[in-house]
Design a protein around this nucleic acid. Structure first.
Lengths: 205, 205, 205, 205
DNA sequence: GATGAATGAGTTTTCATTCAT
DNA sequence: AATGAATGAAAACTCATTCAT
């Protein structure tokens, strides 16, 4: 892929993200993206072939960035409990610097359907992100750090809790994300730990 | 409002709900609603004046039904802890019998914007539903049942947790909602109770 | 169907026919049809739902008119030979007064494809028109009027011969259709009759 | 013209022919041709300047090949009757090995128009092919082999008869072209010969 | 020789809305 | 109370072509 092509693709994906973050999924229209990028609609088609491919490329990219940001922070932790805190913390850090991206993703996952009307991207997000949270939870149970609970509801709740933070932040931009993150860390610490365990650190304060 | 008018409105709102639940927010178009109700587009306009008014009427109605279902179940509980469990339980019971309605609401809240591009319905849902959860949490803290935590993140998390259950259920229709509800009850029981409190019953198992 | 609806459909079909006759299949575009009818594109969609339905409605109508014109003229003849002459003669008479319609049909049959890329209308024309010619030929052979020959090539040749006349007429509008018809009558008279038969009348001159 | 240039032109013309034969005139678009040839659109433009020139080059080439195939076979015959049979026979032989080419030509002749909207290629085909048939017919009449008939209708009918065979073959690929050719030979033998003439050979069987 | 990039005009279709009846 | 008719704007996409490299 040529340099100019890469630049254009990046520019168009950015335009899409901004548009969707501001206007909702309607901001993903070829016309809106082209206007934001100050080019003609056909350029978008030229570089992506299809609206769907643009949207999917954007999601892939954001997912990739998130993974690249979060994974090393998880690997730096030994305990499942530490990983859980690191997961929430790094999601929030990422969120803080990528509001538009996460907003865009959440609009797209809710609205983007293939020709058959299926929400295939939703599924992909589940399998990608849910799985990594579930892995942490499983490890915590295996290591005796976590109590026994059903994995899917806990993981789903955590992911939607972060999404809820995003929604709150959008509604109220003065919200302190750091404090919000601490609250979530405590909530999931309490929700997952073995009840006999005397919690130490923040969660027990 | 005449009887026939009421019937029509109910019919059209139902058509909208089905359409949105199946096809996403695109299912809210006048043409789709009219087709589903097997009448002409102009009838919809006649009874609601505007697409927006139809959509908003649908949301109002669903919100009303939820309130009517949940509130008495909350009032039957004395303790905040009991109310919290009742809240989650009755949300799930409602969900079980009103999948399409809640699905439709979640699509609409995410997509419906006024002429100026504002998501005003989202705000309304927050003020309505969040507030009732916050009231429970506040009472629990005042009565010494709950630990000290920030109200908004906890309430937001709970509401999005329920939304997460809906999403999981849509993706996997065989999911046991009762078990899922129990898990959530435990999670929020653990997350809210005073740490010194020795939980009894399910939550502590 | 209301009166105004019928009128619009007739008008739009007419616009389509004129457009296609003048500009080829490209003249069947919604924009061109709408412009010719001096209305907006959406009116066409309103009345036909789809471009394909408009095109197919036009073809049906023309086929119907042809059938209505030709069939009684065939029924008025007792012998196969007479029917063959009547067929050619009435096709030419029809052609003379419906140049645009037949031109349009021939463009459409050559170009109109369904979503899968199949030329389904061609097939329909074959089964409709070829069959009636084949019936005449069969009868002629059964009655001993015609020699033995393969039905499909003869029928196909006749139909394409008439199409050829249309093409010639378009290229050269001063062409005498009556004389051309006489030539074709003779050609197919000679081609079909029993070789022992002494032809009488024009064909044998 | 360099060797590589020639090769490219041949390749592109071939891609055009295949595309048009399969998809109709829409298969003649630059994008489709380029995709079929697995090169970029600009290559097509580079070698032909214009879509129209590509299309016309393709037609020229096919016409040339037909002429090269048929002419010697005509020259090998002394009598007009023999030439007529040879013409039909060699057209069919050519057709049998060049289905896509003839299909493509027939789509192009029907659809390709210049900027002014004129079907100039049609005219060219008439003057090229019709003329050679007319020459045969004229000779047959001059030599007393053929009866008196109008030249244009007979020649047009013959040419369209062959086209009809192509159409039948496309609709029904199991069709025996050899038998079909024999039928046409007989038909035009009977249609052209002097009525007193006792036909010999196949036509009179 | 070949191609990547861009474009404006064109395609069919969906949409919310207005208006007269 | 209902609806048929019409519309302009917008949607995604295709097309032939131009231009710089």
């Amino acid at each position: 892929m040529s340099f100019i092509e890469q630049a254009r693709r990046r520019q168009l994906i950015e335009a899409l993200i901004e548009g969707v973050a501001e206007e909702g999924y309607a901001g993903a229209s070829l016309a809106k993206v082209a206007e934001r990028a100050a080019i003609s609609k056909s350029v978008v088609v030229y570089h992506f072939g299809t609206k769907d491919e643009l949207v999917e490329a954007a999601v892939e990219q954001i997912f990739g960035e998130m993974r690249a940001f979060i994974e090393p922070r998880l690997d730096a932790e030994q305990t499942a409990r530490g990983q859980l805190r690191a997961y929430i913390g790094s999601e929030f850090t990422f969120l803080e610097h990528n509001r538009a991206k996460l907003l865009a993703v959440s609009y797209i996952l809710m609205n983007h359907r293939d020709a058959g009307g299926a929400l295939y991207l939703r599924e992909r997000s589940e399998t990608t992100y849910l799985k990594s949270v579930i892995a942490i939870l499983k490890k915590g149970q295996a290591d005796g750090e976590f109590r026994s609970f059903a994995l899917v509801p806990m993981a789903t709740t955590l992911m939607h809790a972060i999404n809820g933070a995003l929604a709150q932040w959008v509604a109220n931009p003065k919200l302190s994300l750091a404090e919000y993150a601490d609250e979530l860390i405590t909530i999931f610490d309490l929700a997952t730990r073995k009840s006999s365990t005397r919690a130490t650190g923040k969660a027990a304060e």
